[in-house]
Design a binder for these strands. Structure first.
Lengths: 138, 138
DNA sequence: GTTTACGTTGACGTAAACGTAAAGCAAACG
DNA sequence: CGTTTGCTTTACGTTTACGTCAACGTAAAC
């Protein structure tokens, strides 16, 4: 029993719709296609994006937020699709998954420490602010 | 009562020592200096790095792991130093701290979801691997 | 005394990720 | 019918973050 909300997901998107939604340029979207990360259909000349393509775009942008290159994002996206068939490839896939996980764990640690330092910096800045206000209003 | 370990921290480092330690090139280190992220002293012509400069380098590299540009890393590093004096600057600093925190929280969410997806992908890949092995050894 | 190691300053090259016109087609509007 | 709107391809430009020589200095090692 899946209860869908009353907002129906569009079955297709234009390039400028996607650009507006994600606040990027159409140039960027075409660039991702050039690099093999997107493969929209064509209605004549014009690009038509399916909901699946839209998801791929979201994954690309999430990758960017995490500092991934487009090649890295492509690799990650490729991890979702069917199973790459043979044993060797599957083992390489499992290795890459493990590597990515390790990298993400490092990023988690980096974020934690940076968060702590931001807290400290904030504390000092607030203290300095109070002091600064006193000096300006003695 | 602080009990220091028996390993004494060097009081200074050469550029190639730092390059080896962090597995980067001396070219990169000089580049960071060009961009104003490092300011080593000089013994004659030669650069001499204090432990503090070494920490700054570590912060730069942590920034890179989080996908920050050098400009962003410089901003973050600048958040640590004395208090920038006047009220306006302190308020801008507090704003930037808040912004960075928001960004890091987004990164945390991104990592969480990606971690989950890696788990799924791993599960599927392992299943496909078992199946693939059976087919090769029927 | 010269090879070897390590350092220096240019200066040019390059890969990634787009930005920015330029020029053209195609439907839709007034 | 002309023009605005939206899309297309082609192509050169730009920024970031270094890589890669080249040519030179200095100092220890053989």
């Amino acid at each position: 029993m899946k209860a869908k909300a009353s907002i129906v997901e569009p079955q297709s998107y234009s390039i400028s719709e996607l650009a507006r939604e994600f606040d990027i340029t159409t140039r960027a979207i075409r660039f991702y296609e050039d690099k093999g990360l997107l493969k929209p259909e064509r209605r004549g000349q014009t690009r038509v994006y399916s909901p699946e393509e839209r998801v791929r775009l979201k994954l690309i942008l999430r990758g960017k937020r995490l500092g991934f290159s487009l090649d890295e994002s492509r690799e990650i996206i490729d991890m979702y699709d069917p199973a790459h068939g043979n044993v060797e490839q599957l083992q390489r896939l499992l290795e890459r998954i493990a590597q990515k996980r390790t990298q993400l764990q490092q990023q988690l640690r980096d974020i934690e420490s940076l968060m702590g330092e931001l807290d400290d910096a904030e504390t000092r800045a607030e203290a300095a602010l109070v002091k600064s206000r006193k000096e300006e209003n003695p």
